[in-house]
Simulated assay, not measured.
Amino acid sequence: MCTNFVLIKKKSIVQLAGNLGVNADELHYQPHAKPGAVISIITATSKGNTIKEAIWWLFLKQTETGLKPHPDYFSVNTRYDKLASRPEFRTSRCIIPATAFMESQDGKRPHLLEPIDDSAIAFGGLFKEWTDKLTGEVVISASIITLPGHPALANIHRKSTPLWLSENQFEQWLDCDATPTSALNDFLIPKLHTDLKATPIDKMSTRHQIGEPIRLAQMPNH
């Protein structure tokens, strides 16, 4: 389960934005995105790809002060085996850019995971549009899709792996009109697109290094 990630401006993010046809200066950068945060998502429109701000929590609830993350549904992630029941998988797919993410095993031994080659990460996600009944404002929410565990992360987080898209998958993923979900089966296989540097940290919120980084191979030996 990916519940914390990092997005900082660097050369690889500018390149990722360029590959997606959006302006990197318009991304919402933050050193620590956590559940309920406002994040940047990239979606396809009739005029090309665009950056939108979204609440990182797919299901929202109308309250007296506006739309808020629904307390009954912890929906920062959408599991791969729930996608068939999510209309957003057919109609509202997005890309969530990141430069690093954090994982832990049963809430213990958290690690900061960063591409060893300093490349950017393009998470595959879903989004929803809501209308705030108080203001009439359209509010967007989003989740990151999680897949089965990857063997490289077995000692970091064995249960799941965030969906990490490769550049040649971007167009199909975003083009919901032209790409049926039946064409996306290969996208839902857990993959790392480069080796990762895994740094032990004290906790997600502070990210103080407490041990030596290790290298996780994208294709570990069995």
Rank of each mutant, 00 (worst) to 15 (best):
E167R: 07
H28S: 05
A17D: 02
N77H: 08
E137V: 03
H157V: 06
L147D: 15
T91K: 14
L112W: 03
L147G: 10
I95E: 09
F5S: 00
D25A: 14
K47N: 12
D117W: 02
G48D: 10
L20Q: 15
A122P: 02
A84N: 09
N221I: 10
G136L: 03
P110M: 00
G107R: 01
W57H: 12
I116G: 03
N23F: 08
A98W: 12
I41D: 08
R158W: 06
V38K: 14
N23M: 04
G18Y: 07
T63H: 06
K128M: 15
L60C: 10
G149E: 01
S160N: 09
L126M: 06
K133V: 05
I140M: 14
L147C: 15
F101R: 05
K9A: 10
A17W: 04
L67K: 12
L20I: 07
L60R: 06
T91G: 04
S143M: 09
R207T: 11
K82G: 04
L163C: 11
P97F: 12
L174H: 07
A17H: 03
S182G: 13
N49A: 12
L16S: 04
I116Y: 11
Q105E: 13
H222M: 12
F5G: 00
K52V: 02
S205G: 14
R207P: 01
A24C: 14
K10R: 14
I41T: 11
P190S: 09
L174F: 14
V14P: 14
A142G: 07
D117F: 03
A98T: 07
P213N: 00
K10D: 06
Q218S: 15
F74K: 07
R158Y: 13
N49W: 11
S160T: 08
L163S: 03
D117L: 09
A84R: 11
Y73C: 08
T63P: 08
G125K: 03
Q218H: 12
I140T: 12
I121N: 12
F101D: 00
V14S: 03
